[in-house]
Design a protein around this nucleic acid. Structure first.
Length: 299
DNA sequence: AACCGGAACAACCGCCGGATC
DNA sequence: TGATCCGGCGGTTGTTCCGGT
């Protein structure tokens, strides 16, 4: 018998028993019951003694990402989305670290959210998801919109005591210290100026009033004066900006306003930013253009 | 009704660092 | 001190679902 055949023979006795692919309800039950009796950890032994034909890794993943009792399922709330955007700007793809700030959410879920929702927007805008262009998009439009949604939620849920709703986070927000902290850094923000009205001059709405410390944007260099095309203007401006990709930190940038933030119609074409799904895209095209001063639309 | 493509989610893979022997 | 094992992490792939044609 050749060595190769011997290997196959040995493997057939043990490894070929290993199951892969989706978990069955029976496997889930086995895992849940075993952990209920013996606790987590020692995953390889656990898999063996629980009678699961799975690797320890697979068991661990199944438990942590799906079966654990405190796992929160369903769409991410605007608060959670906002926190993810904020934390990602701080820490980059440190999914597990980000997940620690969102109780009940797994790193896998957050990672999937980023890849399917956030990066989708970048693709549709034809920009890199890690580019400064896209980061500005997030800061200028996505995050204010999320905050607006949170405010609306807050207003609705506290309609009987709506007087303070415009500046006070709802109980939903305050349940999570990280979200609460993020929001408190933003309570001075003038929501109307970034959500419901044409964009004010940059001087009137500073980035520091909108975003937490982690996202605060230093003073900006002069912006392009007379862009011949918005796309060109944007890319030219961006090329002057420093961006520290390694840590996903924001380098020197301007207070972001429409004069330096311009996307061409072509870039927006095909985008589904018109969707107003809370769990997905959070503003639509009309709103997008409404942010901008009329004179800036004459491209 | 069938097919197709994209989105969303679940699961796997490879690598790395720490613990233990 | 090196070898091995285990758990954790981020990236990638596979599967399912759903809407459009």
């Amino acid at each position: 018998m050749s060595d190769a055949m011997a290997i196959v023979s040995n493997a057939s006795e043990e490894e070929f028993e290993l199951r892969r692919g989706p978990w069955t309800p029976e496997e889930d039950t086995l895992l849940i019951h075993y952990i209920a009796r013996h606790g987590e950890g020692k995953w390889n032994l656990l898999a063996k003694f629980a009678g699961l034909k799975r690797t320890g890794k697979s068991c661990r993943l199944r438990w942590l990402n799906y079966l654990k009792p405190d796992i929160k399922r369903g769409n991410l709330t605007p608060q959670e989305q906002l926190l993810i955007l904020d934390l990602h700007s701080k820490w980059g793809n440190r999914w597990s670290k980000i997940a620690q700030q969102l109780p009940g959410r797994t790193d896998n879920e957050i990672k999937n959210y980023w890849r399917t929702r956030v990066q989708k927007q970048a693709r549709q805008l034809k920009v890199e998801s890690n580019s400064q262009t896209f980061l500005e998009t997030i800061r200028c439009f996505w995050m204010p919109r999320l905050i607006e949604q949170m405010e609306q939620t807050s207003s609705t849920s506290t309609s009987t005591t709506s007087q303070s709703s415009s500046s006070t986070p709802s109980t939903m927000e305050t349940q999570n210290p990280a979200i609460s902290s993020l929001l408190h850094n933003q309570t001075s923000m003038n929501l109307d100026s970034v959500t419901n009205k044409p964009y004010e001059k940059p001087n009137s709405v500073t980035s520091s009033t909108i975003f937490s410390d982690s996202m605060r944007i230093p003073e900006l260099p002069e912006i392009l004066e007379h862009p011949t095309s918005s796309t060109h203007a944007f890319s030219s401006h961006l090329s002057d900006c420093y961006y520290d990709m390694e840590g996903f930190n924001l380098g020197p940038m301007s207070e972001v306003g429409p004069s330096e933030f311009s996307l061409s119609a072509g870039q927006m074409e095909g985008s589904d930013w018109t969707s107003d799904d809370v769990a997905g895209t959070v503003w639509n095209m009309e709103e997008f253009w409404h942010f901008r001063k009329p004179e800036e639309l004459s491209i």
